[in-house]
Every structure is written in structure tokens, then in C-alpha cells.
């Protein structure tokens, strides 16, 4: 295969990575933007979503698409409810002190991983793809499911944007993000907004997990890499900026696809980390973040 088709394949792989990363990182960015806390357990919510998707898909009778669809419908709300409960029972009691929340979510990360290890086991397990459509290009064939992942992630992100900009819930979230004290003075139940935001952030990670599990293997430690890449994405894009998160996810995802294809996956991680260092030195607020 000549250079052109190779590059096309690399870009398509990168686009899939970017789509999943954008979903995952937008959840992290949303939580930081509204609540001003860093959720270190975000990758663990992703892993929990994947494990639950494996469980649900394996227990629903019928063709793979049925089990996978059931997982897509019930797993994100379940993970979202779990996260909302953590917010009410733990983070609220810590009064959202940034340092305390980091420590608490590190603890939560370990708890979720160990619960998964005890119940799911240490082995990596596959989830069957819901359909096996193959797109045949002149130079190579490509998974139709992976292209579906890109479209589905785009649709979910569009829905999140519409919720944030066109609904009352989004307006309340944006007002709380700007000034939670004044929001309280205008009848906004900030505790409920925080629980909803933390739940929505985790649910987005779970949607990413359900979408991605048919293309990878489910494992109790699978949340580490997506968490790292999500942090890289939101730092480059600007903490709390959804637009920045999307642009940064595209940069990271596409460069990951190309560098992994032509050189080595490790090199793409090294370059992404270097990019974060450069952003922190020369533009600490990120590409689209507001100055503090």
C-alpha cells in the first residue's frame, strides 16, 4: 500500500480515537467547568461502564446488537447515578475543596478498580461488535462499526451542546459555573446541579466505554490510558471549555493515529505529553480557556 492510503487509514483510526476521546474528555471538562474540581476517578467510571457493558451484553439473549443496545441504554444512566451518589455522599461533605476532592477521587478510583477485579476478574474479555459491516475502499477494507462510533460520538456531543446552550438545565449549569453563590440567590439548587453535572460527566465516560468496547478488550485497569489522554486533552483545550476539548481531542486523536501508524504508539504519547508541557508553559489557560 502506498503512502496516501496509509495516511488515510491512519487518519481514520485517529478520527475514531478522537471521537471517543472527545466524549470522555468532555465529561471531565464539564465537571471541572461547572464544579471546579478535578475528577481523578473519571477513568474508573469509563472502566465501570465497560465492565457493565460486557456484563449486560453477555446476559441479554439474542444477537449481539440487542445486548449492546441494551447496554448503551442502561449503562450510562447507571454509571451516572453511581457518580451522582458519590457526589452527594462524599464530595458535598468535603465542600468541594479541590485538594480534598482529588484525594477522594483517587480513593474512589482504587475502590472501583478493586471491585471490578473482585467481581470481573483479572482477565481481559471481548464484547462482540453489534454488527460486522465492512466498508470496502479501493486500497483497504475498514470496519463500519468504527465509523458508526465516530457518528454516534458526534451525535452525543451535539446533544450535550444543545443541552448546554438551548435548555433550562444547561442555562442553570452555565449560571452555576459563573457564580454559584449568586446562582443560589436566584433559586438554583446548586447541590442538585453539582450532582447532575458529576453524574452527566461520568455518564459521558460510560457512553464512550460502551461505544469502544466492541473494538477493544474489557479489563479492570483499562481506565488509566483514557484518563491520562483526557487530562492531556482538557489541559490543551482549556479546562472547562467544551469547544477547546473538542479541538484538542481532534489534535490528539489524529496525531495519535498518524504517529502510531508510521512510527510507534509510545511516541504519540510522548509527543502529547510534551505538547501539554508546552501549553502549560506558554499558554497555561489552554487553547480556548479563559485567563484566571
Amino acid at each position: 500500500m502506498s503512502f496516501g492510503p496509509f495516511l488515510l487509514l491512519a487518519l481514520m483510526e485517529g478520527l475514531v480515537s478522537a471521537a471517543v476521546l472527545a466524549l470522555m474528555a468532555s465529561g471531565l471538562s464539564l465537571v471541572f467547568g461547572v464544579m471546579r474540581v478535578v475528577n481523578v476517578a473519571h477513568g474508573a467510571f469509563f472502566m465501570t461502564g465497560a465492565v457493565l457493558a460486557w456484563f449486560v451484553a453477555g446476559h441479554v439473549p439474542g444477537p449481539p446488537v440487542v445486548g449492546w443496545l441494551v447496554a448503551l441504554i442502561i449503562v450510562p444512566p447507571l454509571v451516572g447515578l453511581l457518580a451522582a451518589a458519590v457526589d452527594v455522599l462524599v464530595l458535598k461533605r468535603l465542600e468541594y475543596e479541590p485538594e480534598a476532592v482529588i484525594v477522594a477521587t483517587i480513593g474512589l478510583l482504587y475502590i472501583l478498580e478493586q471491585v471490578a477485579l473482585l467481581s470481573f476478574g483479572p482477565d481481559a474479555r471481548p464484547v462482540a461488535a453489534p454488527f460486522s459491516l465492512r466498508l470496502q475502499l479501493p486500497w483497504f477494507g475498514y470496519s463500519g462499526y468504527k465509523l458508526f462510533v465516530v457518528a454516534a460520538a458526534g451525535a452525543v456531543l451535539l446533544a450535550v451542546w444543545l443541552v448546554m446552550t438551548r435548555t433550562r438545565f444547561g442555562l442553570v449549569m452555565r449560571a452555576t459555573q459563573v457564580d454559584r453563590v449568586t446562582a443560589r440567590a436566584f433559586g438554583i439548587n446548586v447541590d442538585r446541579v453539582y450532582a447532575g453535572t458529576f453524574g452527566l460527566g461520568a455518564a459521558l465516560a460510560a457512553v464512550a466505554a460502551v461505544l469502544v468496547v466492541p473494538t477493544t478488550q474489557v479489563h479492570y485497569l483499562m481506565g488509566g490510558d483514557p484518563l491520562l489522554l483526557s487530562f492531556i486533552t482538557v489541559i490543551i483545550g482549556g479546562l472547562g471549555s467544551l469547544r477547546g476539548t473538542l479541538v484538542a481531542a481532534l489534535i490528539i486523536g489524529l496525531s495519535d493515529g498518524v504517529i502510531s501508524m508510521f512510527w510507534a504508539p509510545t511516541l504519540s504519547k510522548i509527543i502529547a505529553t510534551l505538547l501539554v508541557a508546552l501549553v502549560l508553559v506558554f499558554r497555561p489557560q489552554g487553547l480556548f480557556g479563559a485567563k484566571a
Binding site: R168, L171, V172, R174, V178, D179, A185, F186, G187, I188
Partner: peptide, 29 residues
């Protein structure tokens, strides 16, 4: 938030508008 819903409204010192929101959105709140 319940106090406000009972009909006590505050114009805070320094205004404390929801700055990035539009005039219409501030009124909507």
C-alpha cells in the same frame, strides 16, 4: 435557593451578573 423562591430578591454589591451569559439569559434566570 428556597429563600429566593419565597420572594426575596437580591441585587448584590458589585452586581455579580452571570457575565458570559446574555442579557436575555440573565433575565431568564
Amino acid at each position: 435557593h428556597e429563600v429566593a423562591r419565597h420572594g426575596i430578591a437580591l441585587v448584590p454589591q458589585g452586581r455579580r451578573l452571570f457575565g458570559p451569559l446574555t442579557v436575555a439569559e440573565n433575565l431568564e434566570i
